[in-house]
């Protein structure tokens, strides 16, 4: 099986994730889009691992690590969103402009 369709699909997933980050207003939705990006990376790792037939299976191991890190990231990210929501009564990231000039 040729690898290009899978890789292009992963790139599409990545681009969709970027689009989501840029367009979505809701902080939770932005986090969802980040998951999409991470997923695209996972797919790439797995396809390269299969393609190279690495004896150490580093692609799979990295994928596991990424999944773990992503879980941690989601946990922290949601906690931050929760804090923001509790303080500002909104999850709209356009409202969070404390760093404005």
């Amino acid at each position: 099986m040729i690898v290009q369709p899978v890789l292009v699909t992963a790139a599409a997933l990545f681009s969709l994730g970027i689009y989501g980050i840029l367009v979505r207003r809701n902080a939770v939705m932005v986090l969802l889009s980040i998951e999409l990006i991470l997923n695209a990376v996972n797919i790439n790792f797995i396809i390269f691992d299969s393609m190279l037939a690495d004896s150490l299976m580093q692609g799979q191991i990295f994928t596991i690590f990424i999944i773990t890190i992503a879980a941690a990231e989601v946990g922290i990210g949601l906690a931050i969103v929760l804090m923001l929501f509790r303080n500002r009564q909104t999850a709209n990231i356009n409202e969070f402009d404390l760093m404005k000039w």
């Binding site: 980050i21 840029l22 990231i93 356009n94 969070f96 404390l98 760093m99 404005k100 000039w101």
Partner: peptide, 17 residues
């Protein structure tokens, strides 16, 4: 130029990307 400094993360990211 300071108008660029909107404090909005998405705009920053957009410029960056």
């Amino acid at each position: 130029v300071k108008l660029l400094q909107t404090g909005r993360t998405q705009q920053y990211l957009m410029l960056f990307l």
